[in-house]
Design a protein around this nucleic acid. Sequence first.
DNA 1: CGCTTCTTTCAGAAATTTGTGAAGTTAAGG
DNA 2: CCTTAACTTCACAAATTTCTGAAAGAAGCG
Lengths: 165, 165
Amino acid sequence: MAEPTAAERDPEAVSKFVEGFAAQLVEAGMQRMPARVFAALLASDAGAMTSAELGEQLQVSPAAVSGAVRYLAQQHMVAREREPGSRRERYRVHSNQWYEALTNRDAVLKRWELALRVGVDSLGSTTPAGRRLSETLAFFEFIDGEVAAMMERWRAHRETLYGDG
Amino acid sequence: MAEPTAAERDPEAVSKFVEGFAAQLVEAGMQRMPARVFAALLASDAGAMTSAELGEQLQVSPAAVSGAVRYLAQQHMVAREREPGSRRERYRVHSNQWYEALTNRDAVLKRWELALRVGVDSLGSTTPAGRRLSETLAFFEFIDGEVAAMMERWRAHRETLYGDG
DNA sequence: CGCTTCTTTCAGAAATTTGTGAAGTTAAGG
DNA sequence: CCTTAACTTCACAAATTTCTGAAAGAAGCG
């Protein structure tokens, strides 16, 4: 049993991982329910679950799932899938996509940069405080540029690990 | 007045920036009070303030400042300074250091990695879910390595902007 | 078209988080 | 040593957040 197979998937083990990983995400600033939903999807074999399945595993109401999924979809951390010919929706983590979304704190960086520009303007670019803000701004602008390149290197690195899969 | 000087520092403008920038940090997951304290320090000309100064600018109690500073110090986002021969403490943002601390989500990454390893082990590295977690883990390990190099490039880039200052 | 199944919205209850005042602790300076 | 200034801790009150149940809203299917 050191190497479980799909057949012997242990709900307790799954739940333990889900709650543990979710807790880490919460500590890093994510809301609890989105974190739990996301972790549950990550730990699913299919990489996708229905609203009902999520509600059952996490022991929460459909309303809670709905709210969490809306948030995750906005952040591009899950994709909604409509099985054609059914009202049932399916929420999926795209293996190759989700961590790019996590990295896409781009929007966050942009808002920080905007706030800093306002600060530099109103405090004066030649004051000590203004210069500090200005340097901070330069840092974020630099990071912006680097992240794209880094993701490119990751894709290359990934292929050395997994091939073109 | 398009370019304010230190002499005409406008408390309202400062406060506006502080609250605005703090709000962005909060939205990114930081607690409110640490965010406000940090923003206030960033916007100070000296790059450092006493507990009393912070309390007055932010209109909060010494207890609130104390709690916020403890958090920020743990995250290495501010340094505590003891002016020798005084009980007054001074909290400082190290211009060159603070954003490295922000980037030092290293600890966060490490905890995520640990949780993911647990997941891979308990779900089985050959199951679909296990493989997904495993790939996620590989991604974070890759990022770990890249961040250090990126910071190095930033320091070099910074010198092209500001010289050795 | 109406029935049925799934999802979303919304008001409110419950839990958590946050900040305060007051008491406690530490260390400088007489 | 004792006084006093500063920081910290703690219990509690207030504000905020989070989740639920119930009702409303879509969309397939007969």
